[in-house]
């Protein structure tokens, strides 16, 4: 799970500001009787790059899915960009259009071309004129280095290309926060680095990111904080250097030895 990241990372714009982007306080969530997230407290400042890791079933995906309310939490509060997530549909739509999300299985719309995938939300949610939306889309497709695929359908692209389209699609909404839910887990090893590269570029521009991943190379080089979760709780939280060289909890040590050991 360690894809070597060879490039030098430009840290000039990677600055963490004092402004709070996401504030999660005493959040609890249950699936029926099963307590998936226990008393989560997390503050994310603008410009932070947070990697969330942990064994499967530890609740890390559920946590970030709560942030744009793909999952509903039952207790505590989540405030994104000053707006509290409640059952008020207006707030939810507002937050969702501010927060971009990339999924493990890309979830591109297979019946639309790459370009249409990218322009759909700006046109229908933000009422951007079609021409302008297409220009923006091409800009971001160039950024993820696949402008030549614009007229193809998702089914004709490789996994790595699809994930980069998914990133471009989110960026077209000009989000202030990006959530990544295991963006490289469904990819062949040689495609992982092209997606990680795209994510690094995004980080270099100062995007606030929360990334659920097992890619420890990415965590070490890009993240400014690593969060380790187990059994629905945040077990350890530290700077990457400290986290990898000097993990405090036994559970973290075990996890790291398993994931880095081979």
């Amino acid at each position: 799970m360690v894809t070597e990241i060879e490039r030098e990372i430009d840290r000039s714009k990677m600055q963490v500001s004092d402004e709070v982007a996401i504030q999660i306080t005493n959040m609890n969530k249950w699936y029926g009787a099963f307590h998936v997230l226990k008393d989560i407290n997390l503050t994310v400042n603008r410009g932070e790059r947070i990697v969330v890791c942990g064994p499967s079933g530890s609740g890390k995906s559920t946590l970030i899915r709560c942030i744009n309310r793909l999952e509903v939490h039952q207790e505590g509060s989540i405030i994104v960009d000053g707006t509290e997530l409640s059952s008020d549909l207006k707030n939810i739509d507002k937050i969702r259009s501010e927060v971009g999300m990339c999924f493990q299985h890309f979830n591109l719309f297979p019946h639309l071309t790459i370009l249409e995938n990218c322009t759909l939300a700006p046109i229908w949610v933000r009422n951007v004129p079609k021409k302008e939306a297409e220009e923006t889309a091409m800009h971001f497709l160039e950024k993820v280095k696949i402008p030549e695929q614009a007229d193809k359908y998702p089914g004709q692209l490789s996994g790595g290309q699809q994930q980069r389209v998914a990133i471009a699609r989110s960026l077209c909404m000009k989000p202030r926060i990006m959530l990544f839910d295991e963006p490289t887990s469904a990819l062949d090893p040689e495609m992982i680095s092209e997606v990680l590269d795209t994510m690094i570029e995004l980080a270099e521009e100062g995007m606030t990111m929360i990334v659920v991943t097992h890619e420890m190379g990415f965590a070490r080089k890009v993240a400014n904080r690593v969060i380790f979760m187990d059994a629905g709780q945040i077990v350890e939280e530290n700077e990457p250097e400290q986290f990898f060289t000097n993990p405090q909890s036994e559970r973290t040590q075990l996890f790291l030895s398993q994931i880095l050991g081979h």
Binding site: N68, K94, S97, F103, L108, A121, V125
Partner: peptide, 11 residues
Amino acid sequence: GQYEAADALGL
């Protein structure tokens, strides 16, 4: 995932 992607985009 199709429902989720649509939701996540704010539709």
